[in-house]
Amino acid sequence: MSNDYFADYVTVGSVFLAGVAFVVVAFTAAMLVRPTRPRREKYLTYECGIDPVGVGWSQTQIRYYVFAFLFVIFDIESVFLFPFATVLRTFDAAGDGVAILVEMVIFILLLAVGLLYAWKKKVLEWV
């Protein structure tokens, strides 16, 4: 019984160890085999052979984060909407249909207010 209990953990652990061992063996073998010739130019930024100008950093565009964030929120909203849609009819048969419909509409309206706020703040523009 205790053997069965630990069997799955042993499987997972051994797969993990095999993965680690694979990486270690591959990298060590490569390190042993390859020639080592450190040169100053190998650490320079690649700029098609000419001397690099400027800084390699650039500022991230915030619009990607904002759109991903809004997507997640409305995705979760749709996750709530789908099961609601399946059970609405049973509640309607029991007589509470209007009540839970109003609940869900309030939920959607709250998120719509958030979307309106985002719109007014001009974060929905891509450029």
Binding site: R34, T36, R39, K42, L44, Y46, C48, G49, I50
Partner: peptide
């Protein structure tokens, strides 16, 4: 020519 030399040196051995 300097660009060719720089790019050759940026290649890893062998």
């Amino acid at each position: 020519a300097p660009a060719v030399k720089r790019l050759y040196e940026q290649m890893p051995e062998p």
